[in-house]
Nucleic acid binder design. Structure first.
Lengths: 115, 115
DNA sequence: CTGTATCCTAACGGATACTG
DNA sequence: CAGTATCCGTTAGGATACAG
């Protein structure tokens, strides 16, 4: 059994990592098919996309709906719990935007918006 | 040069990972000496503590003050930028607390509060 | 007390090929 | 289209010893 010493650790376990927050962020805006997510989070590999979706599903943040048809169609959407992260994820984005502006002069990195 | 495609990635780079958010969370409550942090974040190794502090400092979130005395004394504190994360980190904690309550029944994990 | 230097392992994550 | 399986390199991170 996993043990945490601060609630912060719990949240980071759920939305931390390289892809979880990002995928959740897109799903919060509305349901998406697997291929749509693959395109939106365009640098993610097939493996990590599926793997991350499974973890989010296991943690009860998103749900998976499968349509029985050929070719297959699967749609992911946030649960109520996942949706409750919306204000937090938005705040994280806003902070990052502000931070980026202050750090741009240093030329340490770049941000490409491709929405 | 690092490239990001969403502001969310930027923030996660800064407070993500296993220790950054946690250390920042303690420093936001007030300046701390190295040994104090080591005690508070009690499961952290010497190596990760120093390494994480360096990264937070490089990102401009905390500052390091050294006293020239024997034995050495070093004190870390948040910068204005680091302090600006206070509402976000608090929100992350609250969410984790709420999430934990909903998940306790499953017996998947435990939380030990040792403040 | 604060910090550095090694060594070592496990997890993360990318590339590719393949299945229904 | 959606997903699985495998291989493999990189990195995160722990343990330990040591230095100023």
């Amino acid at each position: 059994m996993k043990t945490y010493y601060c609630d912060l650790e719990v949240t980071m376990e759920v939305i931390g990592g390289k892809w979880k927050g990002l995928i959740l962020y897109y799903l919060i805006k509305g349901p998406k098919r697997t291929s749509e997510l693959k395109r939106l989070v365009h640098s993610i590999s097939q493996k990590m996309l599926i793997q991350t979706l499974r973890e989010l599903e296991t943690n009860g943040l998103i749900s998976r709906k499968m349509y029985n048809q050929v070719p297959p169609k699967v749609e992911y959407s946030t649960t109520e719990l996942g949706q409750s992260l919306e204000p937090i994820l938005r705040a994280l984005c806003n902070w990052g935007d502000n931070y980026a502006e202050k750090s741009f002069a240093k030329g340490e990195f770049q941000i490409l918006h491709i929405d």
